[in-house]
Simulated assay, not measured.
Amino acid sequence: MSTDARGTDLFLEMLAAERAAAPNTLAAYTADLTSCEESLASRGESLLHASATGLADWMADMGRSGQARRTVARRLSCIKQFYLFLLREGLRADNPAAHLDAPRPEASLPHFLSESEVVALIEACAVSPEASEAKRRRGLVARAALELLYASGLRISELLSLPREALAGERQMLVVRGKGGRERLVPLSDSAREVAQALLALDAQKASPYLFPGRDPKRALTRQAFDKILYEVGLQAGLDPARLSPHVLRHSFATHLLAHGADLRALQILLGHADIATTQIYTHVQTERLKQAVESFHPLSSENVRQGEKTA
């Protein structure tokens, strides 16, 4: 094994052991390291012996290739962590990434559905009683998943990994294992619990350890399989499937809660965000509400001025 490969392997092992990084996270870090390694190799350098100039050139290459600033920032974060790890482990005497700056992130607001669109999406899961058993089960899977995602703000990975026992009895709360292995409690609505328990009853003979079993009952439903279900339901609801994703439902959950007066700290806990700065992206809802309040009630707002002119 080359020295470079040993360094990256040790780094990935540390992420898995000390930070409980998920497989998808490790795959993303591997891709980021590979991107940097390939760029350095084209300049006659290696990951272990990279220079600050070589790393700066790699970042410049990403900018010229049109990669999103968010992607560049994420990859730089990975590389900074990598060289800090090498420094700590004595595999390097310096940190060539110490003075690299991440690009300013793009200001983007989360995409979300309106409340009526969410209702239409859930209602589109209904299947005729005369439909085949497979179609009726598919409709039940869709409804249970959508209600849980929207009622609890779960990530899709958290939803699909839910064990059957999560809904045992009359539990009012779900124990969810989120990023980094952190657990949190999220409330379970009556409607979501009822449809999930109906799915459990229908799947009783599968003896799967998961609430949402895949074709192989020993494994959970895959993200790709759920995406197909969501695509079909979106068409049935008359919504553009391009606007739909599990994360859009999570954004809708957060946006609608804030719109109805939820506290930002409570929302942080429900979403499982380690830092409230991550949750603050949803405050655009509160900003819009304030604008509407001023427009509706301030005596000098354009709306009230127009009303005054009509009554004059």
Rank of each mutant, 00 (worst) to 15 (best):
D4A: 06
G7Q: 13
F11I: 10
A16M: 01
P23I: 01
L26Q: 07
A27D: 08
S42V: 12
G44D: 15
S46Q: 12
H49C: 12
H49D: 14
A52I: 01
T53W: 11
A56I: 13
A56V: 09
R64P: 01
G66V: 00
A68F: 00
A68C: 00
T71F: 11
V72G: 09
A73E: 04
R74K: 02
S77D: 05
I79N: 10
Q81E: 09
Y83D: 00
R88K: 15
D101L: 15
R104D: 08
P105E: 04
E106I: 02
E106L: 10
E106C: 06
S108R: 15
L109I: 05
F112S: 15
V118M: 10
C125I: 05
K135D: 15
R136T: 08
G139H: 03
R143W: 10
E147T: 03
S152I: 07
E158I: 04
R164M: 03
R171E: 06
M173C: 04
V175Y: 02
P187Y: 12
S191G: 05
V195F: 11
L200P: 09
K206Y: 12
A207W: 15
P217A: 00
P217R: 01
L221C: 11
R223N: 08
F226R: 12
I229K: 12
Y231D: 15
G234D: 02
Q236F: 11
A237H: 02
A242L: 08
R243L: 10
L244S: 03
L244M: 06
P246C: 07
H247S: 02
R250G: 02
H251P: 07
H251G: 03
A254C: 04
H256A: 04
L257G: 11
L258G: 08
L258I: 04
A266L: 02
A266E: 05
T279P: 13
Y282Q: 02
T283R: 01
V285F: 09
T287M: 15
T287G: 07
Q292N: 10
S296Q: 11
P299G: 05
L300T: 11
N304K: 09
V305W: 09
Q307T: 11
